[in-house]
Amino acid sequence: MNAPALSPAPSPATPRAAHLVYAFLLAATGLTWFLGETGAAGPAVMAVLMGAALLKGLAVAGEFMELRHAPRLWQAVVAGWLFFVTGCLAAAYLA
């Protein structure tokens, strides 16, 4: 699945994966909003929220920003940023 997208040759349509990622992002946003509306709180909810944010971020970085096809160093930078930020926030929450 990687090979065609990597070549500079034209690939006319938007990759199907992008649409799937979009649907996932909408669903995850809905979940976040729902948790807010129900007033849910506590470490477990925090874990779900940060986990959802992490997955959403990885999806945006991988598919939208096309880091999936980028050199590993760049993947590591952005993924590392996501893990670092969500990790710090979780730690600060639990502290």
């Binding site: 709180a41 929220l49 940060m50 959802a52 944010a53 971020g57």
Partner: peptide, 12 residues
């Protein structure tokens, strides 16, 4: 924004 929204608006 994907981090900002849950952090500032929801997480409690």
């Amino acid at each position: 924004w994907i981090i900002l929204f849950p952090l500032v608006y929801v997480m409690r």
